[in-house]
Amino acid sequence: MTGTIFHVDLDAFYASVEQQDNPSLKGKPVIVGPQPGNRGVVSACSYEARRFGIHSGMPVSRAARLCPQGIFRPVRMKRYLEISEEIMKELADITPVFQQISIDEAFLDLSGTERLFGPALQVGRMIKERIADRFGLTLSIGIAANKFLAKLASEYEKPDGLFQVTEPIEFLDRLSLKDIWGIGEKTLDRLAELNITSIQKLRSFSRDILCSMMGVAGGRYLYLAARGMDPGIYSDHPRSHSISSERTFARDKKDRTAINKTLLELSQQIMHRLIVGGWQANTAVLKVRYEDFTTTTIQKTLKHYLTSSDELYRVALELLRKKWNGSTPIRLLGVGTTQLLRPGSLEQGELFEDRDLKRRKVEQAVTELKEKMKGLKLTKASLLETKDRCG
């Protein structure tokens, strides 16, 4: 196997940002989400909170019962995106072969760079030190010959981990089936019914037999995963024709609040990349992969160019309603835009700017200010507490 792929994963990112911005929270169980007594789920939590059994997607009412001393902080997505953008720039400076896959994760391809940068583990330590020194945050890095193994490796010694896979089969055999990225509860149940209880046993089956038992897509995925071969969990997209971002869930999800939150994060990332890249697009694309590995893609072309992350999010929600029954677990969500063009004048007949176009101009102005004035913090007034707005 060849290649040197890094998977970089910021540890408990939202909660860690809250602790870094407010040092009095360090070492304490921080829970990011609505205050107890309100409906909603946990968006993220610190490792101190995880010791109480709290995890993302959990109702805040249950989190409050498990950890009465937990400190609940509201979601500050603009702040997380701001920090994420700066960290991703640092990572992208290391290698031009860079793929951000979520607000707190990225792949770096450092194949063939050992003479330039040194051994992979040395580069990993350098990255961790650089991010810790500048941002005060820890991250975990997995290093392997492909993205799939690198992703598993970053989870292996979390938090603040650094692990390189040199013997893929030996590494996989240390893990349990539930540790394999992309294998959800329904797949585990089906494998248990077939008396397949370990990765070693899974690997003993041929591709044809697995496909006959698990379906063509599922069988192929399991066959490749058990052998440390990348089943294609993250794909690259031609940037000249489209911009997209995907999220593969560690466990299949059907919680509507968590799924909507993911759509919002993806929409914000895509709109930011459109603005920074100087692109405009009028076609939104939604990709959904269900628990049985079947995948569907749907798109909508508007009569005008997408103008804000809010608008892209609304369109993505509309497309999701057409493709999801609300109960079938989802393993992957993707949002994208196609038919990219450079900005021009208003379309013929559009004599007046609508509200969404004004929103795009505001978002573009904010982006430009952040580029010019590093460290500048800008927050929507609607996200500020009443006392902050009223003085």
Rank of each mutant, 00 (worst) to 15 (best):
E86H: 08
F13L: 04
V165P: 00
G277Q: 06
L263Y: 07
S212M: 12
R130S: 12
E371T: 13
L351Y: 15
E347R: 15
D356N: 13
D356Y: 12
R239I: 14
K26S: 15
K370N: 12
G124F: 00
W279S: 11
L172A: 07
S267H: 00
R203M: 12
K303E: 13
G219D: 05
K186T: 11
G218H: 04
D356W: 11
T166L: 11
T295K: 07
P59Y: 07
I199W: 00
E105D: 03
L110P: 00
K26V: 10
R360P: 00
T166C: 10
T95H: 04
K147A: 05
V41I: 15
L108D: 02
Q19L: 04
M229H: 13
Y223C: 03
E363F: 03
W279G: 04
T337N: 05
P68E: 07
D356I: 09
A153W: 02
T297G: 05
E105L: 07
K377Y: 09
G215V: 01
F205E: 06
G326E: 03
R247A: 13
S24K: 12
T262P: 03
N282R: 14
I87F: 05
T248I: 12
E291D: 14
Q269P: 01
E157K: 12
L317V: 11
I298W: 05
V165A: 04
D310L: 13
Q35C: 10
L139R: 05
V165C: 05
D160E: 10
D252V: 03
K253N: 08
T95Y: 03
T262E: 11
D133G: 12
M126K: 14
G391P: 02
S308W: 06
C45I: 06
Q269V: 12
Q269A: 14
G33S: 07
E185D: 13
H241K: 15
I87E: 01
G326Q: 02
L369K: 08
Q364R: 10
S206M: 01
Y14N: 00
S212P: 02
Q339T: 09
K387T: 15
L332T: 09
L333A: 01
L320H: 00
K322F: 09
P329F: 08
D189C: 11
S204C: 11
R62Q: 15
E363V: 08
R359S: 11
D109L: 03
Q348H: 14
V362C: 06
E170M: 14
Y14K: 00
F107K: 03
L108G: 01
T386N: 15
S43L: 08
A92D: 10
S212D: 13
Y290W: 09
H272I: 10
K201C: 10
L121C: 07
L188R: 04
S382W: 09
G277V: 09
Y80F: 07
L346P: 08
T257F: 12
R342F: 14
